[in-house]
Simulated assay, not measured.
Amino acid sequence: MDDVRETGEPVDETELAIEGALRPASLAEFIGQQKVRGQMQLLLDAARIQQRSADHILLSGPPGLGKTTLAMIVAHEVGRPLRMSSGPAIQHAGDLAALLSSLMPGEVLFIDEVHRMARSAEEMLYLAMEDFRIDIMVGKGAGATSIPLDLAPFTLVGATTRSGMLPNPLRDRFGFTAHLEYYEPEELERVIERSAAMLGIAVPPGPRAEIARRSRGTPRIANRLLRRVRDYSIVHGNGRAADAAIVDAALELYDVDAIGLDRLDRAVLDALVRRFRGGPVGLGTLAVTVGEEADTIESVVEPYLVRIGFMGRTPRGRIAMPVAYAHLGVPTVDSVLGIDDL
């Protein structure tokens, strides 16, 4: 069955296999996030010297910046297996108990979207992280009995896109918390250069910079656009190189404009500017207008538009900023009002 991205876009197994092949295997290979890499290297080296499990690690930040990759690197660096799960899959304390009790000594457990775990599972995780022990309830009512179960020492790597939704008791039990930042264009160019070499396609510096400029500061998007450029080169070129013309044509075909906005981004901006006269407008109304789920608008579209200054959030709703009008070719708010509206 196909997987699904944060955007709701289905991803087949071949696409996921390619993404996996492009992931760096060590902190030395990981591009960007220099401060986080240095902090994690120190934490892992200290654990290795002391021959103990590394402290629990919380990775927060927007999707596509490398949280899953860093969890894989942690397991690789300490030489232990990686067990992967996700918050939505752990909806009962029993689910978590089964997972924790099956861990081997020193194993690394990665829980993606850890803030979406059930509350009962979160409370069980507190004790497991701190004392490597869980209490299992047997029976019901007055005859219920709590049976303690010791766990093998393990390292939990939690990933979240919404760290504010984590309860304080859970957040406090992580020995190290890192927030991943968006990438600079120069860092994305290095990501693209490395990935292009692995994919067997030559991308000169100019076209690399163009892909990086449209990648929204996100390595996952940069690699995805690079693969589409490679596909275009295979069909319309020699499949071994991508010049500026091929890059421009490929990204235009996939509706990625000069600053990285796609069809949905522009639809949201167009509705906000032309239909709602710049706002303010509620998120639900905006989502219905463009025919998309409100969660998708809030988690996928809105963060980037706010970050680049195209959209603002107010207590009354979303508003369009002046640069959004310029990008859509609408010079002023008045220009979107008809004579009958005056």
Rank of each mutant, 00 (worst) to 15 (best):
M40P: 09
M84G: 00
I90L: 15
I90K: 04
L43F: 02
P63Q: 07
R80H: 15
M72D: 15
L99F: 02
R52L: 06
A46F: 07
A54L: 07
L70M: 15
A47R: 02
H92Y: 03
D55M: 04
I57Q: 13
L70I: 15
G61W: 03
Q51S: 06
H92T: 08
G94H: 03
L82C: 11
L65Q: 05
L70S: 14
A98W: 00
H56R: 07
I73M: 10
L65S: 06
G87H: 02
G94T: 08
L99C: 04
P62I: 06
R52S: 04
A46P: 00
E77P: 09
M84R: 12
M40R: 01
A97F: 00
I73V: 14
I49Q: 15
G61D: 05
M72V: 05
T69I: 10
D45H: 14
R83A: 08
L103A: 02
G66A: 15
H56C: 11
E107C: 08
S101I: 02
S60H: 12
M40H: 02
Q91L: 11
M84H: 05
I49A: 15
I90P: 06
E77S: 14
D45I: 02
G94I: 08
G87C: 04
L58A: 11
A97L: 06
P105V: 11
P62N: 12
H76N: 15
A98Q: 01
G61Q: 03
G79Q: 12
Q91K: 14
Q41K: 12
A71S: 15
A75L: 08
G79W: 13
M40F: 07
A54G: 09
L103M: 05
S60W: 03
A71Q: 14
P63H: 13
P81C: 12
M72Y: 13
H56S: 12
I73A: 09
E107T: 10
V74T: 11
P105M: 10
S53C: 10
L43E: 12
R80I: 12
T68K: 13
D45T: 11
L43Y: 01
M84I: 04
A98H: 00
L43G: 01
I73Y: 10
E107F: 03
Q50G: 00
P105N: 10
E107M: 09
R48Q: 09
H56P: 13
G94S: 07
H76R: 13
L96Y: 02
L96T: 06
P105W: 06
I57A: 11
R83E: 03
M72R: 15
Q50W: 07
I90R: 04
L42K: 09
K67H: 11
L42P: 01
R80Y: 05
L99H: 01
A97N: 01
V74D: 14
S86N: 10
Q50L: 08
T69G: 13
G64Q: 07
Q50P: 00
L58D: 13
L42D: 07
L58R: 04
M104N: 08
H56T: 09
V78P: 11
E107G: 03
A54E: 11
L59K: 05
